[in-house]
Design a protein around this nucleic acid. Structure first.
Lengths: 168, 168
DNA sequence: TTGTCTGCAAACACTTTGCACTTTT
DNA sequence: AAAAGTGCAAAGTGTTTGCAGACAA
């Protein structure tokens, strides 16, 4: 499982599977392809949702025998995957949340402050605005993140006006 | 100092000074107007840059006698000021950064990953996109944050290609 | 073999909390 | 006097690091 996809997700075509791309990245840097790193890339590649380090760690603990990795290794590997361009990292409510960034089109998010669900959307207008503004400030844009906070369709109707407003 | 401004910053007109607005907010909630809370609002209102809790705490330590506040109080008060709508909180590189949000127009930022400077800019187009996308998802937008990362004018030319790429 | 990687435990930075005492109201 | 706030020290998060043993190359 999770090895040879034909990866044509969204609008970007990629030739290598995440696992292969990561291997390539590691080799290019004289880093080693260890069992743990493989386990982590494969696991991450097998699920397409947003997740954080502790969630991944917990997931790995439920897997059989040698398919696990320690907390430090999980954190270290996630950072490497970000460097490798496989994952995107963003900070929400104080902890890092990761999402796929390889073979996926650029997109932004709607974040529900009530149920904390993250909804993706894409808009090239955002990139256009970014470039225009950057040019005006002689700034070299390398990326952007647009986070729209509010209430999702479910939460805005549900009267469970319990714990809404939070920090972002 | 920092008491009776005519506050017409940007495009929003406000009647009360930050200090007065905060007092109003506190009273409405049966909270007390203590010396520490006054010291903190005044200090924050007297400077218009972005800052974090530890910076504010350090600043306060340099002031004379009774114009100080402890770390817990600083954190507690900043949270109240956010609730009161006086400050905006955002998370950058792992720690909370605050900026004025009272009497200031809505704006977004360019963030230089090299020198970590924050440059403000405003664009109503962003809000327009936000609303359009939100509508499409039956999402009730309450705010948004657009962060453009990259290199500022100074850093893109300077050859101090030292420690660039970082996390956001 | 050689040098990187792992996992453990400890350290970290930032932020929050329990609690006795102080202060506003 | 009553209720809320303060500061101290300690506890929490989420994440990182030092180092000895384990393992890819």
């Amino acid at each position: 499982m999770a090895v040879a996809h034909d990866f044509t997700l969204g609008s970007v075509d990629v030739a290598l599977s995440p696992r292969e791309r990561f291997a390539e990245f590691l080799q290019a840097r004289g880093k080693r392809i260890t069992r743990q790193r493989q386990v982590i890339v494969d696991h991450v590649a097998s699920r397409h949702e947003h997740f954080d380090a502790e969630q991944l760690l917990a997931d790995l603990r439920t897997t059989p025998q040698g398919a696990r990795a320690s907390r430090p290794t999980v954190y270290r590997t996630l950072a490497e995957m970000v460097d490798a361009g496989l994952l995107h990292k963003m900070v929400l409510d104080g902890r890092a949340v990761y999402e796929h960034d390889y073979g996926y089109p650029q997109h932004d998010h709607l974040y529900c402050t009530a149920c904390r669900i993250l909804i993706e959307f894409s808009s090239d207008e955002v990139a256009a605005i970014r470039d225009a503004v950057a040019a005006k400030h002689r700034f070299l844009p390398q990326g952007h993140r647009l986070l729209v906070t509010g209430l999702c369709a479910d939460c805005r109707t549900s009267r469970s006006k319990s714990r809404h407003q939070d920090r972002v």
